[in-house]
Simulated assay, not measured.
Amino acid sequence: MTKKLGIIGGLGPMATAYFMRRIIELTDAATDQENIEMIIYNCPSIPDRTGYILGTSEESPLPKITELAHNLEHANVDYIAMPCITAHYFHDQLADSVFIPVSNGIKEAAQYIYERGITKVGIMATDGTASMHLFDSVFKDYDIKCLYPDEAGQKQVMSLIYDDVKAGKPVDMDKFFQVKSQLLEAGADIIILGCTELSIVKRDNEVGPKVLDIVDVLAADCVKKCAKARPECDNLITEV
């Protein structure tokens, strides 16, 4: 019997829709009834996470995120996921506010990478995620080193996220491959797409080998917790 999944979404909307799609694709279901029941709050009005973390906005997203979690709790979901990695900055506070387990995509990614013997990763993520070292704070416990783009490269990552995906415009893949090459040349074994907007880049474009999408990790975790997983859940890193 499948469990009920609650999703705090809208951060952003397209990434939330893709997250739901990946959950369905990774679920080993032969009938409609074997798929996961989901309650999704697509709430794009949640204040910008990066702006608050960096101090350019005084409006915290946490109260609205917590309100949605409580709504999901009252709807009797068994597991909660939040397909926004920058918002994982608030994960512990959110998890403490409800009695239902809340998926931690960063911790799941660390476990996935550790099990495959990878020790050095390149991170493509928002300024907020990078500046607060959200990945480093977890990955250090697994002896995994995180590498980040230089200042110019980080600006290209933010442009991909905000100027292209969030703005609904075509993605400039030259920017993507410049950053990817920089991180691989710096010694990264794989590249982590550490922002759900970058998952849309991978959805619509060929990103090449050695890429791990954080949305895939989060979706696989939800499937394993709530239903029966397909074998693809154990093969999430792109190959040649």
Rank of each mutant, 00 (worst) to 15 (best):
F135I: 07
G122T: 03
N42K: 02
Q93W: 02
V171R: 07
H88C: 05
E197P: 07
G6H: 03
I144N: 03
Q111H: 10
A186S: 15
V207G: 06
G51W: 01
I53Q: 02
K4G: 01
E59G: 00
E232N: 14
F19T: 03
H133C: 12
H70I: 15
E67G: 00
F135P: 09
G208T: 07
E67S: 13
M1H: 10
A75W: 00
V98Y: 03
V207H: 07
E67L: 13
T196N: 08
T66D: 04
A110M: 04
C233G: 13
Y52R: 01
I118L: 14
V223L: 06
P170R: 12
T238K: 03
M82R: 02
S45N: 09
V215P: 00
K180N: 09
V179W: 03
R49F: 06
D213N: 07
M38A: 15
Q93P: 00
D189K: 08
Q154F: 03
E67Q: 14
A130Q: 10
D174R: 13
T2Q: 13
S57N: 06
D141M: 04
A227S: 15
P170Y: 10
H133D: 11
P170G: 09
G51Y: 00
F177H: 15
A130N: 08
D127G: 08
D78V: 05
F176P: 04
V138C: 01
F90P: 04
I190C: 06
N71W: 10
A188F: 07
E115Y: 01
N42A: 09
D136Y: 01
K107P: 00
K140D: 12
I8Q: 00
D221N: 14
